[in-house]
Design a protein around this nucleic acid. Structure first.
Lengths: 221, 221, 221, 221
DNA sequence: GATGAATGAGCCTTCATTCAT
DNA sequence: GATGAATGAAGGCTCATTCAT
């Protein structure tokens, strides 16, 4: 599996030029928004705080994003797209066997670029706000459905190829919600276990579902 | 299994007496807070909205709860306690075998009094707000640890009694995060599946972990 | 003619009670809004300025009026109603002859309670803002039409009773726009003439329209 | 009477050359300001909106006019000068008799180039803003005084030549404020009468003042 | 207990103005 | 000349909190 390259550069200590290109400024602000959502949650994420994290004035944030609502929507778009590219890249790099594909998808969700406290918290901030649910559906519904359908197809291929007799829908859902549940744990627990342990836990569950595959030799690297 | 009785009465159409007992007023306000968290999310839940739902003035809400922060803390206490009583009651009513206890605990989490859109949304509202994480830990950390330890003990008993060789920590965690992941699904999906299907999904996963138990005959009733 | 009594009490030096009745507060704020419109114009009238003039916090202004837009609408309602009561009271107190009625209506428009710098400027602030035109029509259109129709009827009565052969529409319009034009002068000129001179000017114009009436003996007193 | 030629060209669909002469750019921006004042009113007229109407960037608007305040002042200068040229041209083209001069002045004020919704609204925007009153006096006071003195002189000539015995000040004022009052009507009314009807109304009033002149044969052409 | 007037901190947003390119 | 990124003052509005009644 090839990890997706980081989509935006990390902020450097070098003094940025006073005026930046439109795209670079927007990426910088979106990253600051993710950090703010993670640190302060949805309700305390303010334009002023985002601007301060990006080292610019609040006016400039709105100059680039028009409104706070739009900023949040574009931030959600960004992490959704980042997530989609991550798993699709991992899937493309995996072999043709369904077991390799499942493994690739699981590993992708715990990859360092994705399974970051900030990223997880940002997701959770959107999940936790009922008001953002229509926004979430509009921006992520299709992606989530695509992920799910992909996983269902792979589980069906496991049945066809290896003689399992699972309900593909339910099996795919189990894999997905195990990952999500572990993500939630990583955020919620005061002293969470490691990402590696989370990965091992999903693998344990997956191995239970497909006992003749996913031998214990695989680790997250 | 005996379902835990509802801890607070549902709001009736009958106008409440102008002067209610302290406890009844407080319960009424807490229920209104849960509804507001579910309907409007953490960031849009206001004292005024809670008061309107409870049919009283905002002044009275703060008279009873001192501050909004305290109101939210007590609301969290309430649902945490409600949740604790629910699973402990279910566990007490279950038989002595670990498989019966696991089944009771799972069923309890999908019981109608607990697995309500409002309840789930309220939980999620707290999870999504990083600012409330210390609060959450302070109020729910002990409960969550107790639940987890209980589940670990039961899983260890499954090993001892029935010859399974699982890591009890990891197995207990799997059962717990499957439930949480399904809860998240129920809230996040635009058109979620039924609670019964969610229950069946956990049971499928549990059955995979303990293949010689949890036969398909059990339904959520 | 009996001058309409002032509809709201002038602010006194006596320290007002910390909390006032709803109506008295609202009247106080509306008067402050009129003053602000007169002093600063539409574009510089802010909620904060109105609040400062009323000696209260901006929050309280919005507590009573919900929004700035609504405050302006209610202020317009207020002066429109004040104006309507003023001329209708004057008309009711006038005799039955159309010449007495015309005289009463003209005098009413230059009465001290109406023809105030603040009142005139407030009207002009609404006229000058295209954005407020729909608001103006919605709130004042009916009143203005009523005034105009009344004047048309009186002019028709002048024809019928005294043998004039004017177009009643045009004559009524002339009387009305002479008054409005003089109001505009009183506001626009750096060193305007007196209200009495404005009144005499309208009377001169009216006398020209009805040469056998409105002898020079009438003054505004 | 010869109508004053339009002082600035109407905007054409043809894209203007990227670099225009200084004067042409300034005229273009001033015309855009008039339109913005008319469409959006004083309080909603922004540099950005003016720039958009002129098809240039807001930076360029301020490059040419230094500040918004100065832009508004120059716009006022422009319409004041346009107005002055309009009536002075009309007056110069009129005959030597005072009755011809009065007629020419009245007609000039309802000429198509002057009595435009945009022009009227722009005037009204300035009148309605008390803050702009010093500006108005500084820029238009002399013009207005000149107009008034001219009209007073003409009314005095009417007396001398034709045996009327009016107060020239008051008569001149009546003619002027009738025109202004009708302008106000044209802007304020939801469904105003035509400009021609407004002109006829002034003529009716003028005829009443000078019964032996201004026979009904004259129309606005 | 209970209400609702009152305050003020803090939010989102607009917009005139500056200035690097 | 010309653009548009960038700033920051100021405005409308929300809402937790206080407090007189």
């Amino acid at each position: 599996m090839t990890a997706a390259p980081p989509l935006i550069e990390a902020p450097t200590d070098a003094k940025p030029p006073r005026t930046q290109s439109r795209d670079s400024r927007r990426a910088q602000v979106i990253e600051a928004t993710i950090q703010s959502l993670a640190d302060r949650g949805f309700s305390r994420t303010t334009v002023t705080d985002v601007a301060a994290r990006a080292g610019i004035s609040h006016g400039l944030v709105l100059f680039h994003f028009q409104s706070k609502e739009n900023l949040l929507a574009e931030t959600l778009d960004f992490i959704a797209e980042e997530y989609r590219i991550n798993w699709q890249t991992a899937l493309a790099a995996a072999g043709d066997t369904p077991e390799a594909q499942i493994l690739a998808l699981i590993k992708a969700d715990f990859a360092p670029a994705i399974c970051t406290p900030a990223r997880l918290s940002a997701w959770c901030a959107f999940w936790g706000e009922n008001q953002s649910r229509p926004l979430y559906q509009a921006r992520c519904g299709a992606n989530d459905a695509l992920y799910n359908n992909t996983m269902v197809d792979i589980c069906a291929a496991m049945n066809a190829l290896h003689g399992y007799t699972h309900d593909p829908e339910r099996t795919a859902r189990l894999i997905r919600i195990m990952i999500e549940g572990l993500w939630l744990d990583l955020m919620t627990l005061e002293q969470p276990y490691s990402v590696a342990e989370a990965y091992e836990t999903v693998m344990t569950g997956t191995r239970a579902l497909f006992p003749r595959h996913f031998g214990a030799g695989e680790t997250i690297a």
